[in-house]
Write a protein that binds this DNA or RNA. Structure first.
Lengths: 235, 235
DNA sequence: ATCATATTTCTTGTATACTAGTATGTCAAT
DNA sequence: ATTGACATACTAGTATACAAGAAATATGAT
């Protein structure tokens, strides 16, 4: 390994706009490539090669890779190379723990400060998810799932809450790509989302907390079988 | 302003060791300078000036400042300058919310998985804090407070949990420097820490959660008066 | 004196060159 | 066949040079 062209992104060098910092654009680009498994866990990323592909110097590429290492998407080994991190069950569990802690607090907060707008919006998303499930459209379903959790995360006045949740969720999203979504799973998620909104509406924090906790524990049940199916992507 | 020497750190350029990356050392150095209020909120930080003081090039300094902007300690304004972020009550509230969410989950977890070692260590720290309070030694008391929360944060097998808590706590630590510690406050913190350990020992998660929640809400009570005393450091 | 407009001097962003450490392939000695 | 030395081709870390933009300052007209 580490011989053939290390990176072959499907987008060519011209994907950069001129009005935003190059480093940030490259960060987003590579992050998306990692989440979508275009760059595989364990794969090497060469600063020089990336720089050539984007038609820029190593400097912004390097800054982007440092950022990616901050969020645990790549690992920089000095004088050796930069590699896409493999999945680790421990990291997934960490992310799940933190997500549960914060999201549980958020829905508890929401139950105490009932907000009709958010409840209506949540119910709307659930309705759309029902349609996506009927159409058996996993991608649409996932996007709506993200939207649902983002709605809750953004419902506090604390922007950072949504940021931290998203950062942790990203690690689960990477793995989620490998999990094929079954119809039965759609139904469970739908029921759980419905229960969460209902609990918030009831105004009882503990009920909302419990509903969210159950939901996130169940999400993990889906993920935990993946290492056996794809051991090559795990440490 | 922004005329006289922008930065005058008390340590001279030779404080860098050769075996670790320069960028990381500078990051730690500047972070500590910000937490200790050696660099004041709103103050400008010049990449060039810092580089000269450390006797290095702009590159590692720049990377350090980018990292500091990630954790919200500085703000990089393109083509204008890099500034130490001012305090904002909203950011403190964000940090408190996230801390409470995670630390509550941690002690709940601990109550369910009772660990004698951690309880003993916690009680030991509390005993030392009692001595520090008797000696009226705020610095020692604070360090032990950090140690207490770190003990709990590190008690899960998830390293990231401690990392996230520390990252959020840092914003409260910055402000904490401005709060003069009174004897009466020592006593409250001691009682609260004792209650947390006792609740964990009892094995009832909800009790532990409540104890931690009370503690962190009270910490905020101490911080919330500071903007009035030091409006110049707030946005 | 006041206002509009160059100009100069800051700043960060990016490109390039160089340093030093690491893996690897070659080849000789065992 | 195995081992070890050494040359080579990588890597990331750092230094330096330049570009682009913003702000302060100087300049000149009114």
């Amino acid at each position: 390994m580490a011989k053939q062209p290390l990176i072959t992104l499907s987008t060519n060098a011209k994907g950069l706009s001129f009005d935003r910092p190059t480093a940030i654009q490259i960060f987003s680009f590579v992050r998306d490539a990692i989440i979508s498994m275009e760059l595989l866990p364990g794969q090497m990323i060469s600063e020089t090669s990336l720089a050539n592909q984007f038609g820029v110097s190593r400097t912004p590429v390097r800054e982007a890779l440092i950022q990616l290492s901050n969020i645990g998407f790549v690992e920089v080994l000095p004088q050796r190379g930069t590699y896409v991190t493999k999945f680790s069950m421990n990291k997934i569990l960490e992310a799940r723990f933190i997500r549960e802690a914060i999201e549980v607090s958020v829905v508890s907060y929401l139950a105490e400060h009932v907000n009709d707008e958010i409840i209506l919006e949540g119910e709307k998303i659930i309705a759309e998810q029902k349609l996506a499930a009927d159409d058996n459209d996993p991608l649409a379903f996932q996007k709506l799932d993200d939207k649902f959790h983002q709605l809750l995360a953004n419902s506090t006045e604390y922007a950072r809450v949504a940021q931290v949740i998203e950062a942790e969720k990203a690690h689960m999203d990477r793995v989620r790509c490998l999990s094929l979504q079954e119809e039965e799973q759609f139904k469970r998620v739908l029921a759980q989302h419905t229960a969460i909104i209902k609990a918030i509406k009831s105004g009882v924090p503990d009920k909302a907390a419990k509903a969210m906790s159950i939901h996130l524990k169940d999400v993990y049940n889906v993920l935990k079988v993946i290492p056996q199916e794809h051991p090559e992507y795990f440490v």
